[in-house]
């Protein structure tokens, strides 16, 4: 088995654990490269089927290409898509910096959807190498009341024995591609021929490395207009993946504040 086979097998194992252990399960899908890989892995785990709802928290501010992608692949991949709404910005904590506050709408939308549908667990496509607080995540990450993440006292997790039972009222996030890198994602997309939004590919010297809301996400300088060129670019780049995501950089702890409150 090569490296991609190994990490693929680990992710499938985790997705199957979640499906077996969590009774009301959903998988988050944002139409980005990571969550497309996640849906793809679910189809691999269940031999072409996805046996749980695919959940999208719609901020209403995604780029048009992303909505077009959603509308095409929800049918092509035969997904049971559940779309959740986000509250308006004036209902969000005004002490947060502007872009962070905007991103926090998604947290509130997520909480409302979890409540409405009664999900005990949501599978999410975050990765350790994206960002410092995500690096500290568990594969099965319990959230207390209101979706809070207590990063100071996380339960131990080792030997592929995940915490899959929780006290009543607990919600769990499951992170099957936590151990993947950005390069792993691209090499896997290449190998499996997974469709992507074409915003990732350079046009006029710019491309998006990470996709989010249109007003707080910015493209980076790049000439990479094919997967091969993107992989070559990532092998040498010194720019952080989320450098184009404004809420990560407004203050030292802005992203940490978002995540402790339940952001992905």
């Amino acid at each position: 088995m090569n490296h991609l086979d190994t990490i693929e097998a680990e992710s499938i194992y985790i997705i199957r654990e979640a499906f077996n252990r969590i009774d009301k399960l959903g998988m988050l899908w944002s139409f980005g490269k990571d969550s497309n890989v996640l849906v793809w892995l679910a189809k691999k785990a269940f031999f072409g089927h996805v046996p749980f709802p695919i959940v999208n928290i719609d901020t209403g501010k995604k780029m048009p290409e992303m909505y077009a992608f959603r509308d095409r692949y929800r049918h092509e991949w035969n997904l049971d898509l559940v779309i959740g709404e986000c509250p308006p910005i004036d209902e969000i904590d005004p002490t947060l910096p502007p872009a962070t506050r905007s991103a926090a709408r998604k947290t509130e939308g997520l909480k409302a959807l979890i409540k409405q549908h009664g999900y005990n667990g949501l599978i999410a496509g975050i990765r350790r190498d994206e960002e410092g607080t995500r690096a500290k995540e568990r594969v099965f990450s319990p959230r207390g009341e209101g979706g809070k993440w207590d990063f100071r006292d996380q339960p131990p997790e080792f030997w592929d024995q995940y915490n899959t039972e929780f006290p009543p009222g607990t919600h769990v996030r499951i992170h099957p591609i936590l151990h993947w890198t950005e390069l792993d994602i691209w090499r896997y997309v290449q190998r499996e021929r997974i469709p992507l939004v074409d915003l990732y590919f350079a046009k006029n010297g710019k491309r998006y490395r990470s996709l989010g809301d249109k007003d707080i996400t910015f493209p980076v300088d790049s000439q990479a207009d094919t997967i091969e060129k993107i992989i070559a670019e990532l092998e040498t780049t010194q720019i952080s993946e989320r450098s184009g995501r404004a809420m990560d950089h407004e203050s030292e702890d802005s992203f940490e504040r978002l995540r402790s409150d339940g952001y992905l």
């Binding site: 500290k136 990063f151 890198t181 030292e252």
Partner: peptide, 28 residues
């Protein structure tokens, strides 16, 4: 020690993972 809380206490609270590579292979 990427988290605010850790910087202030000066000790690492949790494990973090980071990737690097040499000519020989990749490391986590």
């Amino acid at each position: 020690d990427a988290l605010q809380a850790e910087r202030d206490q000066g000790i690492t609270i949790d494990t973090t993972q980071i990737h690097f590579k040499t000519d020989a292979r990749d490391y986590v």
